[in-house]
Design a protein around this nucleic acid. Structure first.
Lengths: 235, 235
DNA sequence: CGGTCATATGACTGTGCGGTCACATGACCG
DNA sequence: CGGTCATGTGACCGCACAGTCATATGACCG
């Protein structure tokens, strides 16, 4: 937990510190990220950081909390208007929101990405929770999909969760690579609004692939490819 | 490149050194892996390592070459008996071989895994090649699948490559997690032969999902789920 | 003004690292 | 034997790091 001193800081300075820290932890693994560099970039004394945070881990975990809070707020904003809605349509919305996060907060998203794949000296402490949170979220979705008949009953549920979460997690990276955009270039305002149609199309295709691959063909609840991209009322 | 001295070493010592190095680079990221620890574990002097390798990077890249060679040898061993074979049947064989590598050489596989996801100080030098090699391999497969009509023509080829390679790359991890096995526990002989039937079944399911998701339904070249797992003559 | 107190400072400590090098060892040879 | 040469050694160097602490600052107050 940050100290009271940190919260007493003038807004601008506190934000500058967070931005610098996010940049550092986005560009470097936890072990390689350097407090010395952060304070050098900010032009403040090393000791100051230790007025605000107990240690490096304290600072890092605070940043990670920011990420989790922002992401959860985002996901909870994606409400299914109809609880009976085909889960693939719902998934399409989730993926779109998730990708929005990558576009609007690419540096924060990078910190989150590292949190999952870096080997932190305290990996089990909070990180596993991130994966778990995301996994349970999708697990619920899959269970709902099975009980509603959207997902083929012969598909192993854990395998379905694996397929969906793995593809969801890496899809953002794929989009960046596909568009030839470097995530470290853009922050906030970005030049990829022009690509939105292409991105939308890729989204629809991915969800269609998932729907085809995992969906229940017998139930008739899952339209085939012939209605591709036209099943989501948000279009 | 290792020095001549390294190759002059007695077989046992050379292998012990490689094993220790593989363990170190499997357990730690490149930056965190420590030459000092390697020599301590081996009970040799630090200077000795520098008789064999120019520096840490030289040692690491040599290990990586070992991984790539072993993996490529493995993949080239998977020959399609029939070049017209449904690419999903072929893919099933590739995945199975790939997973075998994870089981028989888990430490080496872990080094390879880290090579892809770690942020190395020389990331572009050789690492991108690993991804690229794997990607072009799958790209060829996808192109073949499209031209043979196994893959639906309306699917974006790059997206298909993304889906296949992402799932392939992480499937090994999923298997370990699913079975509750810690990759760092086993080496060589392992206690998961007993799970082989379950693993086989998951393989078949994954390939079926891919086939359903990406396959061409019009051409009739891609049997549906009703023939699940029975299309591969290796069964 | 002097006094106080939250805040800021940066020289300093201890630690571990990659890499070096002057020297030791010992197998082999004439 | 002495000499040679490939190989082995570990104290040592420079460096970067996280974290400490005695000291400095300056806003505010009576």
């Amino acid at each position: 937990m940050p100290t009271q001193t940190f919260f007493n800081l003038p807004e601008a300075k506190r934000q500058a510190l967070l931005d610098a820290a996010i940049d550092e932890f986005a560009d470097n693994s936890y072990n390689h990220a350097s407090i010395s560099r952060i304070v050098a970039r900010l032009g403040i004394a090393k000791g100051s950081i230790y007025q605000y945070f107990q240690d490096k881990q304290d600072l890092y975990l605070y940043l990670l909390d920011l990420v989790i809070q922002e992401k959860l707020a985002l996901l909870h904003g994606v409400q299914s208007p109809d609880p009976q809605m085909n889960i693939f349509a719902f998934l399409r919305r989730l993926l779109r929101s998730s990708a929005d996060f990558n576009f609007t907060r690419p540096r924060l998203a990078q910190v989150a990405y590292r949190a999952i794949y870096d080997d932190l000296p305290f990996h089990d402490e909070t990180i596993a929770r991130m994966r778990a949170a995301s996994a349970t979220y999708i697990t619920q979705l899959v269970e709902q999909g099975i009980s509603q008949g959207n997902i083929a009953p012969e598909v192993d549920p854990e395998l379905a969760v694996f397929v969906i979460s793995t593809l969801s997690a890496d899809f953002g990276k794929f989009i960046f690579a596909r568009l030839g955009v470097d995530p470290r270039t853009l922050d906030g305002e970005n030049p990829l609004r022009q690509h939105l149609p292409e991105i939308e199309q890729l989204f629809d295709q991915l969800v269609t692939i998932l729907e085809q691959g995992l969906g229940n063909r017998q139930a008739g609840a899952t339209p085939g490819r012939e209605s591709q991209g036209a099943t989501d009322d948000t279009r």
